[in-house]
Amino acid sequence: MALQEITFTSANNRDTIQAWVYEPVVPARAVVQVVHGLGEHSRRYLHLVSTLLDAGFVVVADDHAGHGRTAMESGVWADAGEDAARVVVADTLTLQDEARARLGDRASGLPWVVYGHSWGSMIARGLLPRAASGAGAPVAGLVLGGIAAQMHGIEQVVDRAALAELSAGDHAADPAPMELVGQLFDGFLERYEPGAGPTAWVALDADVVADHARDPFNNFGAPLSARFLQGFVDLYDRVNGDDWYAGVPAALPVLVLAGDQDPVTNYGEGAYHVANRLVASGHPDVRTRVFTGVRHEVHNEPTTRAEVEREIVDFVDRVVARTSTRPGGTSA
């Protein structure tokens, strides 16, 4: 494996984004961009990264503004600056350009697949209109894990008027009131055992939950700024709205992965909802897997990790085969 570190200035003009390009020892067949979720960082995907490298894929990943090593460097956690919805999508597109420049001829003609988990699934969906307009890399395949859809707190509980007032005020960069943050995660523990810890929704496996909690690059408990919370809601609304489905290229292959005990995806129903809406809006190439008995991080759960990785590798293999059959071998 060859590893390159990339840094670039965030669209918020404050942070220096920390990113990495992992290259397989064999000639690469595709590029997979991993887009991590809320309150975590990209090295939590190293098991998946290793599997993708073994399959002959380049992997590109970063730690978003307010997260992971990027936040370690800036000292600012859980805040992405003004208009966070725009910033995180713009930074993800910039990484594509930076990675392609670093890879040079080694990336020429390779299909680019984006895998986004949780908040990352929102960022990944947010890329598509920009990619279609020529920004970043042409997206040849989209994988959405732990997909944020039909979230009860955002759709039915969050006091949007109060949040909008706070995020537009002089203290927008200050921590949002815990009441508002709690509304975002409303009902996350309702279906679990009595006494379940506050992050029990992350995984069924207790060791995965414990690892998530003790990882200093996670810092999931860092207070979300009001403007970050507003940006999270804004991006959620955008990628779950009617216009998003209309903007997805009709021929784009999509893979949706979730657990049926995951409140982020409405216990699996959100995954089916997104897949069904894609098909109904003229996107026939959609595959959905909802895994029984597991929670949010299906890619980390010991009982589903291997199968999830197999789904992703098979999906990218199919994108590679599909791309190679087109004139010139270029992606959509």
Results as ranks from 00 to 15, higher is better:
A210M: 13
V209L: 07
D211W: 04
D215M: 08
S225W: 03
P216C: 07
R191E: 06
A210K: 12
V202F: 10
A213Y: 14
V208W: 00
L189F: 07
L229V: 10
A203G: 00
D205W: 07
A213R: 14
D186N: 14
F188G: 01
R214F: 11
A206L: 12
G221H: 12
Y192L: 14
E193G: 10
A226M: 04
F217K: 06
L189E: 02
S225V: 14
Q230K: 14
P223T: 13
A222E: 13
N218E: 09
E193I: 06
T199F: 12
A226E: 01
N218T: 13
A226S: 12
D205K: 02
D207H: 11
F220L: 15
F220Q: 11
F220Y: 13
Q230F: 14
W201N: 00
S225F: 12
T199R: 03
L224Y: 12
F220D: 12
V208P: 06
L229M: 12
G197K: 02
W201G: 05
T199C: 05
A222S: 15
D207R: 13
L204Q: 05
F228T: 00
A210L: 11
D186I: 03
L204F: 09
D186V: 10
D207G: 10
V208Y: 01
A226V: 04
N218G: 06
F228Q: 05
H212N: 14
V202R: 09
N219M: 14
W201L: 12
P216L: 11
L189A: 03
G197P: 08
E193L: 14
L189G: 05
P194W: 01
A200V: 04
A226F: 10
S225A: 15
V209G: 00
F228S: 02
W201S: 03
L189H: 00
D211T: 11
E190C: 02
Y192W: 10
D207F: 03
D205Y: 05
E193A: 15
R214K: 07
Q230M: 13
F188A: 08
V209N: 00
V202G: 09
P198E: 11
D215F: 06
Y192K: 04
V209E: 00
A200K: 04
L204A: 09
E190N: 09
A226P: 02
F228C: 00
W201K: 00
A200I: 00
G231T: 09
D207I: 02
A196N: 07
F188E: 01
T199E: 14
V202A: 04
A196L: 07
F228M: 14
R227H: 06
P223D: 13
S225H: 07
P216A: 05
G231R: 04
A196E: 02
P194D: 15
P198G: 08
E193F: 06
R227F: 12
A203I: 08
N219K: 13
S225P: 09
D186K: 04
L189S: 07
A222T: 13
N218F: 02
L189W: 00
G195L: 11
G187T: 10
D207M: 09
A222M: 13
S225M: 12
G221I: 11
L229S: 12
L224W: 00
V208K: 03
D207C: 06
D215G: 11
D207V: 09
L204P: 00
F217Q: 05
R227S: 07
R191D: 03
V202C: 07
P198K: 14
G231A: 08
F217N: 04
D186Q: 01
